[in-house]
Amino acid sequence: MIAAQTALVVIDPYNDFLSPGGKGWLLNRATIRALDTNTNLERALKHCRTQGVHVCYAPHAQFRQGVYDRRRYLNPSAYLAKVFRTFRQNSWGGRFRHALQPQQGDFVASEHLVSSGFVGTDLHGHLQSSGISDLILCGCLSNTCVESTARSAIELGYRVTILEDALAAMSLADHDAAIVSGFAMCAHQVISVDALIESEIA
């Protein structure tokens, strides 16, 4: 990988997904504990920043009144986000987990409303203007937003790497479904954070 052409994209690292007490914690905690997700996300961020890899965030829309009103159909995950007011604006759950906060020089893309970090956002424009061709994806959730973002990314011509142990999902079965059947079709490689750290980034 060439640092100047690579971006780490952290998807939906909200307290509601990743922190005890978050609205998705009861569902997500099994994968977070099994994979040691939060530690691995921190390690991936630290390593990429040290190596000069550009860090981007692809955040899901925060819940606020009317945010879903322009949708004719709410798909299952968007419907549940509306019902449970997931990532509510100006709430603890709607903030990024403390240890995963953006730092100076990072890019926080505009919000995605459904699941792909590219659809309706400024992420692709920013990556293009930054000369990025390779993406390293991590965050939440394995078979929804992360996989959707990967599927969009390959259509847009990016080479996609997914960090298999820096992910969370609503169950271990969901995570395994993404690893076995989803990422096999939409990622060029699926590696651990250890492998990322051991790999050469020029």
């Binding site: 798909n75 299952p76 995950s77 078979n143 929804t144 959707s148 079965a173 479904a177 993404a178 989803g182």
Partner: peptide, 8 residues
Amino acid sequence: ITLPRIVG
């Protein structure tokens, strides 16, 4: 597992 979370 996956598509029931995504599609109607």
